[in-house]
Design a binder for these strands. Structure first.
Length: 429
DNA sequence: TGGGGCTCT
DNA sequence: AGAGCCC
């Protein structure tokens, strides 16, 4: 019996979502691009086989698209979000506890099963998610989240496991897996830590698991100590409640091209501020301050670099787009300098508080309260219109239809499952 | 050559 | 505030 936690991870998730509705993409090298069609963030097995790495810029793939029939799609987050919810619903039917971790990964609890039952249970999950949603998944079960992650990788990459891997602590299988897993593939170990660990002669997950966690803590951090313990089979990483309101809300975007135009940047900031305020209201919070940043292009060392930021506090916690917009504009004015070519701009709302637990001002009067209620209704109406008619249907200030920061998405598929006008048709012949 | 969010120091 | 991590 193992104190089990499972990780269900969707295979090539975005590509798999696209294939559910376009079966002709089966068997072909398919990639999905990041926002703005910038770089590859999901790859089919066929695209991986062509040697295309995660994060490859789209412009480097033009030849492959022409010569090898590679299909590159813009990302369609509405579709992926909806498919993710479907996967979660199936898991909730099959498992006691489901904790979404990311759009394509869910942790599950496997309490109360024998090893044999666990194996069957994992098989059932593997089979039914595919059957009911069309999305292929791999299932890893182990004593801790970190080990479940490793088990999942094995389920995916070792053909013998065929998509399901149940790892018993201390078993020869488990030890063998740790020994052949490079540290960079361990959850929580990024490239900086890989370099530093290598200096200590540590290269594999087994090497880290063999260390005294106390020593790891003193040389690195409590985070890596936890990772070491988890590799040893001791659970010590809690799940964040994914339903908890965010502590910060950010909206940022790269410009389609470099720009130093103040007016253009201002328009971008205005749009990001309004979008952030919308997200703020959606999670029923208010913000006490607005953070604005600009960045020049790091990949152009030949150009002058300048990446300033500024925080402007709001008079009182608010979710009203107008003071937020005003604060963002002030912040921008404080940091903007001409003679730099900017690449990206963003707005972050910080110091968030629960809208329902707001400290009422001592100076509150019936008049001010009435004003507040009017503003609330105005914002609610704004949000409803934008939700119903499409993002940015109604905005404060003048619209800017051809601005440099608008999302590039040359090749986005229909939102098959979330927009009536984009429903798939089935034609009988 | 993405965008968004978290924790730790 | 900055570094580092995650997807």
């Amino acid at each position: 019996m193992i104190g089990p936690v499972g990780l269900v991870d969707c295979n090539n998730f975005y590509v798999s979502c696209e294939r559910v509705f376009q079966p002709r993409l089966e068997g072909r090298p398919v990639g999905v691009l990041s926002n703005n069609d910038g770089c590859v963030i999901a790859r089919s097995a066929e695209l991986k086989a062509l040697g295309v790495e995660m994060g490859t810029p789209a412009f480097e793939l033009r030849d492959l698209v022409r010569r090898q029939g590679v299909v590159l799609l813009s990302s369609n987050y509405e579709l992926y979000g909806d498919m993710s919810a479907r996967v979660r619903e199936v898991l909730e039917e099959l498992c006691a506890g489901v904790e979404p971790y990311s759009i394509d990964e869910m942790f599950i609890h496997g309490d109360g099963f024998s090893r044999r039952q666990l194996q069957d249970h994992a098989q059932e999950i593997h089979r039914k998610v595919r059957r009911y949603t069309g999305i292929p998944v791999c299932v890893g079960l182990a004593a801790t989240r970190t080990l479940a992650k490793l088990a999942n990788r094995a389920a995916k990459s070792v053909p013998g496991y065929a998509g399901v891997c149940v790892l018993s602590p201390g078993s020869p299988d488990a030890q063998a897996l740790l020994e052949k897993t490079p540290l960079g593939d361990v959850w929580g170990v990024g490239h900086r830590l890989v370099e530093r660990l290598a200096l200590m002669g540590l290269h594999t997950a087994a090497d880290l698991a063999a260390q005294d966690p106390k020593r790891i803590r003193s040389h690195f951090s409590v985070t890596l100590e936890r990772t070491a313990r988890e590799l040893q089979g001791t659970p010590c990483i809690e799940m964040n409640d994914t339903n908890r309101p965010r502590d910060r809300i950010m909206t940022s975007r790269s410009f389609g091209r470099l720009t130093s135009n103040q007016d253009e940047i201002h328009q971008a900031i205005r749009q990001h501020a309004q979008r952030s305020a919308e997200k703020l209201r959606a999670q029923d919070s208010k913000a006490r301050a607005v953070y604005v940043f600009l960045k020049t292009n790091r990949h152009r060392p030949d150009l002058a670099q300048y990446s300033p930021s500024a925080i402007v506090e709001l008079d009182e916690p608010t979710d009203d787009s107008r003071p937020i917009l005003h604060a963002a504009t002030q912040a921008l004015q404080a940091i903007y300098r001409p003679n730099y070519l900017f690449m990206k701009a963003g707005v972050m709302l910080i110091d968030l508080v629960d809208a329902n637990r707001q400290q009422l001002s001592l100076l509150d009067t019936p008049q001010r309260q009435a004003d507040r209620e009017r503003n609330d209704r105005l914002m609610a109406t704004l949000d409803q219109l934008n939700q119903k008619m499409g993002r940015d249907t109604v905005t404060l200030g003048r619209p800017s239809p051809k601005a440099a920061w608008h999302l590039r998405c040359a090749n986005r598929t229909p939102r098959w499952t979330t927009q009536w006008r984009e429903l798939p048709y089935v034609t009988a012949r």
